[in-house]
Every structure is written in structure tokens, then in C-alpha cells.
Amino acid sequence: MTTARPRIALTLGDPAGIGPELAAKVISRPGILDAVEVYILADRAELERAFADARLPLVPLSDEPTPGAAILLDDNSAPAEEIPVGQVSVAAGARAMHQLERALALVKEGRVGAIVFTPLNKTSLHLAGMHEDDELRWFAKHLEFEGTTSELNVLDGLWTARVTSHIPLSGVAERITAPNVTAAIELLNTVLVDAGLTPKIGVCALNPHAGENGNFGREEIDHIAPGIEAARATGINVSGPFPSDTIFLAAKRGDFNGVVTMYHDQGQIAMKLIGFDGGVTISGGLPVAITTPAHGTAFEIVGQGIANTRSTEHAFDIAVSVASRRLND
């Protein structure tokens, strides 16, 4: 019996950045195209430039799933004028969005089980018409998904989710409610299980010293602890709230493989101090796994062939793992 291969849609990210080079390098790894059906969203000329930037020979291409070859979905839509590299532009943002829309269409058609995209530039995306707070909300809109979502970050076996994300700090406290805390815990638990892990989740406090019994704020008492208890009542292995200045020390020594934070930088600062290279961002909660490296477009090194692939490799491998589990469940 032949085991079905996971099917991954791959976009080259912002064409002005290092994304095309990263995509070329990641699918050139030995054995990848034997184990995975990779659908590349790009015109052939774009793909050839990507491999030239990566200083690698073009991988074998096929019109249909073939072990050892990638499938290039060239819709002959590249702009007539070359997009300038190493800088923000409407054209770069529009090109990145076009290919992401095509990847989402593949999901809707049931042709792929996960999407991997290389780094995007938010300014270029906004110039090109992406007006949502972030790509996650844009994905949810295009997938007509209205459930709970959260940007998840992964580094060296540690996964984080957030109760709030891309909002001002002044608006965080009012959104820390027991249902929102429970929803973030449940989402992280689901994604950990989807990735084949046994969840051990810790939850951050919002206030210094976890509120110190209400002396520094009551969010822990009134909202966070009840949210944790509601999640625990469903069978989730979760504990807290813990002071945010110590929880990541506990996670680093292995007490948790998942941490729920209350706001964006509460987790991001800690994760990037633990290790910047290798980080992955996951659009959590959506009906399809969507992953990307947790770094930017690195305009300053475009075309030099020196882009570090560690984060992109991890993003690709996580997408493959989730797609494989769903395919074989």
C-alpha cells in the first residue's frame, strides 16, 4: 500500500525580498519532493530567478503529482515590468497577495492540505490593499471563517498563542475576559494535538507578580483564572496564571510546550531572546495549516544567496506534519 503524500501550496512571499531564495532552498533539500507534493504559485521566470538567487539548479517540474518533482502553477500573470528588489512597492504587495489568493483557492478546492509562504512586507501589502490588521485576518476573510483565530509562534519545541494580538496596549485589559482566555487555550491545545504533541500549557498573568492577590490588578482573579479553569474542565492540561517574567524560564526547562500570553510582545520578546533563528509563525484556528518563517524580508541581503533557511525549513516541516496527520486520520 502506498501512503498518500501531503500536499503543500508554496508561495514565494514578497518578490522584493529574500522569500523567493528561501523557497528555492527549502524545496531543494534532499528527499523533500519525493515525500511531499509541492504546488508552487509563481510564473516560471519568477521561479528561475529564485533558484538563480539561491545559487541552485532548478528542481524538476511536472504538470501532475510526480515523486521527485514539484508542480508549478504558472498562470502567466507576472507584471510586464520587473518588480524592484530591496524596496517597498505596491507591485510587490499586489504580487504577494495574488499568489496567496491562489493558494487559498487551492485550499477551497481541496487540492492542498497546508500553505507555506515566505516573508511578506506589511507596508507593501497595505499599499496594495490589504487593510486587515494582519495576514491572519485577511486569510480568515478569504476563507469565510468566523471562528477563533490566533497568531501562534513556534521555536525549538515551544509554542505560544495570544489572547490579544495586534492592538494597542491601552486596549489589552478590556479584552482579557474568561471566554477569550479559554478560547486561546483551546486553540493552542488543538494545534499542539494537530502537530502530534501532548499538550502541557502554561498561561501568563497580565499584571506584575500575577496581580499579587489583587494589589496590582484583578484581571488574574476575575478573568484569567476562571478562563483557565473552564479549559481545564474540558480535560486540557493547563495551569496558571504565572508571572510573565518567569513562565518562559519554566517553559525553557521543559515544564510547558505551550504558553498562552495576554498580548503580543509579552510572548514575542521572550521567544526572540530564546532564539531568533528558527522561529515560525502559524495562522492558528483556521481550517487549514498556514505557516511562515517568523522573520522579515531582509531587503539588505536580497540576491546574495546567503539567506538563512532555518525558519523556513521549520515552517515547511510543521506544515507537512500537520497536513500528513490530517491526510492519514
Rank of each mutant, 00 (worst) to 15 (best):
H98N: 08
E101Q: 13
E101K: 15
R102T: 09
L104G: 00
L106F: 07
L106A: 01
V107M: 02
G113Y: 05
A114R: 02
A114P: 01
I115R: 02
I115P: 00
V116T: 04
F117R: 01
T118F: 13
P119Y: 13
L120I: 14
N121A: 12
K122Y: 04
T123P: 05
T123G: 06
L125W: 09
H126N: 14
L127D: 09
G129P: 08
H131D: 14
E132S: 13
D134F: 05
E135P: 10
R137D: 12
R137H: 14
W138L: 08
W138P: 15
A140P: 12
H142T: 01
L143Y: 06
E146W: 07
G147H: 11
E151F: 02
N153P: 06
L155H: 11
D156E: 13
G157R: 06
L158S: 04
W159T: 05
T160G: 06
A161R: 04
A161G: 02
V163W: 04
T164N: 01
S165D: 09
S165N: 10
S165R: 03
I167V: 15
I167F: 09
I167H: 05
L169G: 10
G171K: 09
G171P: 15
G171V: 13
G171L: 13
E174L: 02
T177P: 04
A178K: 10
A178E: 05
N180G: 14
T182M: 12
A183E: 15
A184C: 10
I185Y: 01
E186P: 01
L187Q: 03
L188V: 04
V191D: 00
L192Y: 00
V193G: 03
D194T: 01
A195H: 00
A195V: 00
T198S: 13
P199H: 06
K200Q: 12
G202E: 06
G202F: 03
A205I: 02
A205K: 11
L206I: 15
L206F: 14
L206K: 05
N207D: 13
P208G: 13
H209D: 15
A210Q: 12
E212R: 10
E212P: 13
N213A: 14
N215T: 12
F216D: 08
G217C: 10
G217M: 06
R218W: 01
E219K: 00
E219M: 06
E219I: 02
E220W: 07
H223W: 10
H223N: 09
G227Y: 02
E229R: 15
A231H: 11
G235I: 00
I236M: 01
I236Y: 01
V238P: 02
V238C: 02
V238K: 02
V238I: 00
S239F: 07
S239N: 03
G240R: 06
F242G: 03
